[in-house]
């Protein structure tokens, strides 16, 4: 019973982290149909910001990471994605791959390939006991962060005019522009929010792993991407739920699988993703038909 409770606690924490990553990708996808594979590199960049702000108090490190994430995110939009705004989703996806590749190698050329250890968030690594389960501090912070960010995003999207503009733009970009939504500012806001979320993800990641390398961004980006597709493209809540599900299933597989097949956990996970895609190509939490309307 205790094991199960522990697995459930791990599932909630890991699901929350994946939900955050998925949100960062889905925000941008919503307004410009871009699957931002460079998101992982933005997370890595915020982690490097934490590395350069080593040993400073948290109220300097965290804002520094947010600034790094937001600036880089907005820069990639301005320099790489804006010229491609009218291109097909496939072209944009490949451009995002190129941005990711460029940033990764830029990190390699400047900071180097060796892992850098980061002390920021190290205090979160120690375990706390809550009832029957023992969880590291960052798990609790992850859950709190995802709740705060989801509530904040919801308020932003429902109450502010920019947020309403964003929702309109993700429904129908052209129609939104016709009724006066500023395309550039809506897209910029999406990238700003996504960059800020990347900083939070970066903080949580380094407090869990304690270090960073130029290639650390690949796994979160891939998982976020898959989470978004599993949940459903084009809806923030669907993407977040998809992320949560992916993270939670990973932890439960870890708990349920016998030891000798545990190395194949990811194979089970991604076979499940494949089966899900075949069963519901439009995503789990999306009602509309996958077939494109003419």
């Amino acid at each position: 019973m205790n094991d199960l409770a522990q697995a459930a606690a791990d599932a909630i924490s890991s699901g929350s982290l994946y939900a955050l990553i998925a949100l960062g990708i889905a925000l941008v996808f919503g307004v410009m149909r871009l699957v931002n594979m460079a998101y992982g590199e933005i997370v890595v960049a915020t982690a490097y910001a934490a590395y350069f702000l080593q040993d400073r108090p948290v109220w300097i490190v965290l804002p520094g990471m947010v600034v790094a994430g937001v600036v880089l995110s907005v820069l990639t939009e301005r320099l790489a994605f804006r010229p491609l705004r009218n291109a097909s989703p496939t072209t944009m996806l490949i451009a995002a791959f190129a941005v990711s590749f460029t940033l990764q190698n830029a990190a390699l050329a400047t900071v180097g390939a060796s892992p850098r250890s980061i002390t920021a968030g190290a205090s979160l690594a120690s375990a706390r006991t809550i009832g029957p389960v023992e969880v590291p501090g960052y798990s609790i912070v992850t859950v709190i962060a995802v709740v705060v960010i989801v509530v904040g995003l919801r308020a932003f999207l429902l109450k502010t005019s920019l947020g309403i503009g964003m929702r309109a733009a993700s429904e129908d970009f052209d129609a939104a522009r016709l009724v006066g939504v500023n395309a550039n500012s809506v897209i910029r806001v999406a990238f700003v929010l996504s960059g800020a979320i990347a900083a939070v993800v970066g903080y949580l990641l380094v407090s869990a792993t304690g270090g960073i390398t130029p290639t650390s961004g690949l796994a979160p980006a891939l998982l976020g991407f898959i989470a978004v597709v599993v949940g459903g493209m084009g809806s923030l809540s669907a993407a977040a739920l998809g992320g949560f599900l992916l993270g939670a299933v990973t932890q439960f597989l870890q708990y349920l699988l016998p030891n000798d097949v545990l190395v194949f956990r990811d194979a089970f996970l991604f076979s499940g993703v494949l089966a899900l895609l075949i069963w519901r190509p439009q995503g789990l939490f999306i009602r509309q038909n996958a077939q494109e309307r003419v």
Binding site: V35, P89, T90, L93, L222, F225, I226, V229, M233, V263, F264, R265, D266, A267, F270, S271, V273, L274, L277, I278, P281, Q282, A290, Q291, E292
Partner: peptide
């Protein structure tokens, strides 16, 4: 179709890699 087909091959690659 489209993106779902592309992602499905990605899932295939991740399974193969694992």
């Amino acid at each position: 179709n489209g993106l779902a087909a592309g992602i499905s091959t990605l899932a295939f690659l991740l399974v193969t890699y694992n």
